[in-house]
């Protein structure tokens, strides 16, 4: 049977394509605009106003100022360190828990699972957690950023679902040869779980890269500040004194292309990773977690 589109069908298609294109443009233009302004010169931005489609008076001076700013550089270094250390802790914890809780024969498995799931719906809340961190003398140390979120129950369940889908026959012969669980995890389970591991690393790494709130309540020492806290000062609180601006109108425009350059510098690294992992997103990875 040959498919023949009716007039109504074609009209639907046209409207559909127009709507989706508009959605794409409204998502993309603000980001593109930030990029364009970051490459424009101060005087030209002031002359042409905000609506721009190409860099006006192309210049890299905003980026030079960003790179010359010590706080941004230090924040960048701190953030990279937090991402690497934090994601490593997250992955170790998540993999260990997911492996353990995917062993159907494990005595007490249900109890452990319940202990974890409860925390998805009920928690001590901001203030008691804050007090616990203080009492443990973690305040103003990097461990206040690394430990309280050492594992996400949601991600663990996703990974457990994936592990449960691995056929048991794969590990059987290793068991007969006397392999213990650590060997089975590292030699058999992990090598076939690379898609879910890639997605998890991305989720955790993005989380650490973008995190600012714990740092804002637990850190006082500026030397430890992650990039996002420095960004908050520049973008939200408008504190540009560190960057050598004053409060006249020209200085405000300086802040504008500088602001946008800091946005680009802080956002592009994470966006570069994302296309490599995108293909795994839809592959039922997220769906599995819902069935729990």
């Amino acid at each position: 049977m040959v498919y023949k589109p009716s007039f109504g069908d074609r009209l639907f298609d046209y409207i559909n394509y127009i709507l989706l294109t508009l959605l794409m443009l409204s998502t993309f233009y603000p980001l593109y605009y930030v990029f364009v302004v970051s490459l424009s010169s101060i005087g030209e931005i002031a002359k042409h106003g905000s609506l721009m489609f190409f860099p006006r008076g192309f210049t890299l001076e905003a980026y030079q100022s960003v790179i010359a700013n010590n706080y941004i550089l230090k924040g960048f270094r701190n953030t990279v360190f937090y991402v690497v250390l934090g994601t490593s802790i997250n992955m170790i914890m998540t993999i260990l828990a997911a492996y353990a809780l995917s062993r159907k024969w494990l005595m007490g498995r249900k109890v452990f699972m319940i202990i974890i799931v409860i925390t998805m719906f009920f928690s001590g809340g901001l203030i008691p957690t804050f007090i616990v961190i203080q009492k443990l003398h973690l305040y103003n140390t990097i461990w206040a950023l690394m430990l309280p979120g050492a594992m996400s129950a949601f991600n663990m369940i996703m990974m457990r679902t994936y592990f449960q889908g691995i056929p048991e026959s794969l590990e059987e012969s290793a068991r007969i040869d006397g392999a213990h669980d650590f060997q089975i995890l590292f030699r058999i389970i992990l090598p076939v779980s690379m898609p879910i591991i890639a997605v998890m690393i991305l989720f955790y790494a993005v989380g650490h890269w973008n995190s600012w709130f714990s740092a804002s309540i637990y850190l006082q020492n500026r030397e430890l500040f992650p990039l996002q806290l420095i960004l908050r000062e520049i973008l939200i609180q408008g504190r540009i004194s560190d960057m050598g601006g004053d409060t006249s109108n020209v200085a405000h425009q300086v802040a504008k292309n500088l602001k946008y350059a800091t946005i680009i510098v802080s956002t592009v690294p994470i966006l570069l990773v994302y296309p490599f992992i995108q293909k795994y997103f839809v592959k039922g990875v997220l769906l599995g977690s819902l069935k729990e």
Binding site: T27, L31, W212, Q228, L231, S266, L271, Y274
Partner: peptide
């Protein structure tokens, strides 16, 4: 894309 951009 916007999902990967930080809240700040």
């Amino acid at each position: 894309i916007p999902h990967f951009i930080s809240m700040v």
